[in-house]
Design a protein around this nucleic acid. Structure first.
Lengths: 220, 220
DNA sequence: CCCTGTGAACCCATTCACAGCT
DNA sequence: AGCTGTGAATGGGTTCACAGGG
């Protein structure tokens, strides 16, 4: 379930704050969702709650981590050492959350050898060797859109079975490979859409308040 | 609709490639979705298709851009000039896709004044002035988790009405503010979950093939 | 004849509501 | 009494299937 990571984060925060027990109601409020949904989601892990009391925060954190496979670190390999690849590698957030960068590769000779976030950029031909030596299962595509499919193919050929795609392109992979896509521009476009609607609404209100003498049906 | 940006991207690529007309079937294949869904989504824009023929690619691109409010650029302001903020600012992708970085702010004195991606880091107290001078509607939160709520409050106070939150925290905003959350760690955790399931499946297969004599119910 | 546009059927996630344990 | 766990009801999004226009 895609909400488990969210619960994990909330529960971890509560645990840090010294909370040892939590009800579905409280957790739902923190996450801005329905309490019944929380209970359904958590019941999927097993019956780990205590009726009349709630859930043990620490135990729940452990169970979610186990379910998500977060009992050990997962090294990732980044394909593409351009702006985005450098950004992701330099951003320490991956390692902090249990996903250290185990390698970065690129096709461009001039990028190879430079060190970003403590990791040296290597040639994409070395991808299989990097993946196998560090037992890497997750690859990150940080190439321009047109190169994304090649990057995905290279990752799959190297033995990676999960792909996080930041490139603005849809990649095709064989069955059995997990792909997730994060497109920063798409997120902004969705916000732009909301802004656009707000702007239209303001305009409509204005037109309604002061109907122009030559209004061509704009108020309809 | 959250799929319009995807169609826009696909259609733009097709247009670049010289395709002038496209059927819902073709577009559906490119996007990996159902053709009926494509038609429903596009019909929401109006009846812009031609029966028996398909859709005019260029016209459709224009209509989607209009609907998404992409007829002009939207400047964004980034809060947080740490690793992630620098990464996002240095990454040229925002500007390329119509969302140039109009400012970066931080609370830390030592970050202020440095230039990232051509933009100078300024103090968060100047946020309102930056937002108003450039008429910025979209703010990006790139702070550590605990500072995210403060960043959101500052953005809203400054007049921003849409927020893209990269911090690992849920932020509360007044009604009427659009918020989207992108958590890179969550994406990786979801992939980790898939990897975990694959690992479990492999283990189960192995146990089934060669049942251990002292198996403690693992094969159930 | 081909493909769009759309009512109707379907499906699955969400929510409700309450039985049951502590 | 309080809160979990879950069958039943709800609702929204997806898919089907076909009428209708080019």
């Amino acid at each position: 379930m895609a909400r488990l990571p969210v619960y994990l984060q909330l529960l971890s925060e509560q645990f840090e704050a010294g909370i040892t027990n939590i009800s579905s109601e409280e957790l739902a409020t923190l996450g801005g969702v329905n309490a019944a949904k929380v209970r359904k989601d958590l019941s999927y892990l097993g019956s780990y709650g205590t009726r009349g009391v709630g859930y043990d925060v620490e135990f729940l954190v452990f169970q979610i981590k186990r379910e998500l496979g977060l009992t050990h670190e997962w090294h990732v390999v980044i394909v593409g050492a351009g702006n985005l690849g450098q950004a992701l590698s330099g951003y320490g957030g991956f390692g902090e959350r249990g996903f250290p960068v185990g390698g970065i590769v690129d096709v461009a000779e001039d990028k190879i050898g430079s060190v970003i976030g403590g990791v040296r950029v290597r040639h994409i031909d070395e991808l299989a060797q990097i993946v196998q030596s560090r037992d890497i299962a997750i690859g990150v595509i940080a190439t321009p859109g047109p190169a994304a499919q090649d990057a995905a193919d290279a990752l799959v050929a190297a033995g990676v079975t999960s792909v996080l795609n930041f490139a603005p392109a849809i990649v095709n992979t064989p069955h059995g490979i997990s792909v997730r896509k994060v497109d920063l521009a798409v997120e902004l476009q969705i916000l732009s859409y909301h802004e656009q609607r707000r702007a239209n609404a303001r305009q409509a209100t204005k037109l309604q308040a002061v109907p122009g003498p030559r209004g061509r049906g704009a108020s309809a």
